[in-house]
Simulated scan of single mutants.
Amino acid sequence: MAGPLECVRVVSVAINLPGPAAVARLVSMGATATTVLPPSGDPLEHYARAYFDELHAGQDIERLDLKSHEGRSRLDVLLAEADVLVTSSRPSALVRLGLDHESVGGRHTQVCQVDIVGHPGAAGEVAGHDLTYQAGAGLLPDGRLPATTAVDLAGAERAAAEACAALVERSRTGRGSRREVALSDVAVSVAAPFTHGLSAPGGPLGGGLPVYAVYAASVGHVALAALEPQFVARLCGALGLAPEGLTADRLREVFSGRTAQEWQQWADEHDIPLAALAPRA
């Protein structure tokens, strides 16, 4: 079946991760996309080629030197038929290339432009990447590298949402608009459960609740997330424990008696939110 964004045409000049992930999300909803890469390519091609290919599946890729007249002319041809433009460069770089919204909107009034930047507004020139945004938002309290680029990916989802919002706005006004996604703001949103104490150490989702924790099994580990009363009751019944017996020490003892995969099968049979930890990729 056709997706909700069928007939929406996206042009992207965004490299690295947030932009391509945002465009992949739009494509998954039915949009068609052309990604314009510089002659040197996208760094992601070199770091993780399989991931790059996954994010660009179903898209047209053109390699253009946008510093040249020929490259900018070809991009203008693409923009003349585009509905959405996704960028991820500093504002000054967009101005130099004639890709700031004032310039693009002046030539192509129908284009909805989504600019992914590091910091909002006047701070848009400040350099950064996922790691620095997570650090600034307090998401690296133990000083270790994060397991994933959570801000980049959350930023991609926000950028896709902003593109959809701009398309809705255009349906009312008849003109495209500019939407800005600042990754530092996204990091603050992602960090909110931690900064509000929900997932901070000792918080309800940070080790304070025995029914929401990770436990060692005889082989492997399991993640238990029996938050709602019905799951707590089901857990007690399946384990033969009274509610007051659901202490961390008792659960550690219980889960050490089987392998993680055995507990996974048990949880599936009893409709309990528990998962065996997948091995590191």
Rank of each mutant, 00 (worst) to 15 (best):
L55C: 10
R172S: 14
S177N: 05
L140N: 09
S68H: 03
Y47L: 15
E62H: 10
A93D: 14
V181I: 07
G155P: 01
R63E: 07
A93Y: 05
Y51T: 14
E180H: 03
D142K: 08
E125C: 11
A50R: 14
L55W: 08
R144A: 07
A163P: 06
L55I: 03
G138S: 09
G138E: 08
G128L: 03
L66H: 07
R172V: 11
L85C: 09
L79Q: 11
I61F: 06
L139E: 05
A82Y: 13
E157F: 09
G176C: 13
D76H: 12
A165Q: 07
K67R: 15
E62R: 15
S103K: 04
P193R: 01
K67V: 06
H69D: 14
H108G: 00
E125R: 12
D100P: 06
A147M: 08
A50V: 12
V168G: 00
R172K: 08
I116A: 02
V168H: 09
P146R: 02
D100A: 11
R63M: 04
Y47Q: 09
A192I: 01
L167I: 09
G174N: 00
R90E: 04
T148N: 12
R158M: 14
V114L: 10
V168M: 11
E157N: 15
V111A: 12
V86Q: 04
Q110M: 04
D65H: 10
A135C: 08
R90D: 02
T109V: 12
Q110I: 00
S89P: 00
H129G: 01
L97M: 10
V77M: 09
T149W: 13
L145P: 05
S73P: 00
Q110F: 01
P193S: 03
S73T: 14
A156P: 13
R179V: 02
A192T: 08
Q59I: 13
G155A: 10
Q113D: 10
A150E: 03
R178V: 08
L64H: 06
T149N: 13
V86G: 04
A57H: 12
Y133A: 03
V126M: 07
R90K: 15
S177T: 14
L55D: 05
D65Q: 06
S73V: 08
S92N: 02
A135R: 10
K67T: 14
H69W: 02
G118H: 12
G105A: 13
P141L: 11
Q134I: 07
G174P: 07
F52N: 06
D115N: 13
D130S: 05
A135T: 10
H101I: 00
Y51W: 10
P146M: 01
A192D: 02
A147E: 09
C164R: 00
C112V: 15
S184V: 05
H56D: 01
D185K: 02
A123T: 04
G98V: 11
E81C: 04
Q59G: 11
T148D: 05
V126Y: 08
A160D: 07
A163C: 13
R170D: 08
L94G: 00
D60V: 15
T173E: 05
D76C: 11
A82N: 13
E157A: 15
A159M: 07
H108L: 05
A163K: 01
A48Q: 09
D152V: 09
L55A: 10
P193K: 03
A147R: 12
H69V: 15
R179G: 00
A160M: 12
L85W: 03
F52K: 03
H101G: 00
R90G: 13
G155Q: 05
V151A: 03
A82I: 12
